[in-house]
Design a protein around this nucleic acid. Structure first.
Lengths: 201, 201
DNA sequence: CTTGACATTGACCGACCGGTCAACTAGATT
DNA sequence: AATCTAGTTGACCGGTCGGTCAATGTCAAG
């Protein structure tokens, strides 16, 4: 049981690192196995296909994102709107760490897979879509709390949270193309402007 | 000379269609040649590599984007801020047309390649980065015109234009993951909120 | 009519693709 | 000791990868 979970987990970790650093199509099953120290035959004992492994990778990435990024950013030790700003700081920190480790800015693993795979694999698209929807929740909760506090007028918190997370994804693509993690923080400073409803013609 | 440009152009068109619909790594040189009706040997007469062909594809996509999307959206027949709103309408229209043709929402070809290739090919990354920088220009010009008109207070037009185009990219990723072109228009309605500088703590 | 440049062809390269499979090992259960 | 099961192994499948190359075809300028 121990070696079972261990081999399986090493395959997930290996695939996560390789696919996040490059892309789904560019990484082969053999290479994933090499990095995990697993023979290819064993791979197919644990996963029916490369695609299914990728779905497991997404599950674990979502768990990490939820607990270590969203959870920390949206902790209730500061006022709700400041939590949104803190999320962009943490996202920038994370990208900066990745760049120091690898020399590259990998961007958002979910956005990357959405861009590459949405037209090719409906299962992956739906999983990424659900991850994005779940990511909206803490944004919406923070907005609702700000409305309750009187920090914000009555707004459509769901639609606003969605716009905020779409902006997150765009910042990641933009910063990745520029290979510049500082852009995450710089562009993130404007995020709160998306919060207040239409004021311009 | 005629057949030269013709074969070369057919290869560019074929690669554009295939890579935009799927991804760089998933499309092979042989498949590009098949669709173009060209033998593989001829391919390497016109392009030193698949990568170089992709750079040519990007050049032509940029020309199309500049003239047929940005040019029309930012025409001066309406006030400057309305041109920004019109851009999102046109972007949504284009994605909807693509979805009707193919059943899929391909998103932004530049953002797609940025996500997939930025960590893998510096030449492609730099070209996409430059395309994005160029795309900011009409946004910035419209903002400057709005400031001059008194429709807008004095703002950092360059930084605001950048935030707007990052938002564009995010909308495309988000709508692609949802396979829903309507999201482009819905989320686009919030774009102008990014325009006015900080008003919230 | 010849020359030379461009264009085209198809065979070929080694490597790799995702995936399959029968045989084998090891450890727990009876 | 015999049985069962999960795990492991390495050979193997047909097909494709990006790219090379020498031979051939085409056509216009001299």
């Amino acid at each position: 049981m121990d070696s079972r979970t261990d081999t399986r987990q090493r395959l997930i970790d290996s695939a996560r690192d390789l696919i996040y650093a490059r892309s789904y199509s560019d990484v082969g099953v053999q290479e994933i196995c090499n990095r995990a120290g697993v023979r290819k035959g064993s791979f197919y004992h644990f996963f029916p296909s490369k695609r299914d492994l990728t779905l497991s990778v997404l599950d674990q990435l979502q768990a990490f994102f939820r607990h270590d990024i969203l959870g920390r950013a949206f902790a209730t030790d500061i006022p709700p709107l400041q939590r949104i700003s803190r999320f962009f700081e943490y996202a920038g920190d994370f990208q900066q760490q990745m760049q120091q480790l690898t020399g590259q800015m990998p961007g958002c693993p979910f956005g990357n897979l959405a861009s590459e795979m949405s037209t090719q694999d409906e299962g992956i698209r739906l999983k990424v879509k659900q991850i994005m929807r779940d990511a909206e929740v803490p944004f919406e909760q923070a907005l609702a709390e700000a409305v309750a506090n009187g920090d914000l007028p009555e707004i459509d918190t769901a639609a606003t949270a969605r716009a905020l997370f779409a902006y997150v994804e765009g910042i990641m693509v933009y910063a990745k193309a520029h290979n510049d993690p500082d852009m995450v923080r710089e562009l993130g400073k404007r995020a709160l402007q998306l919060v207040v409803p239409e004021r311009l013609a």
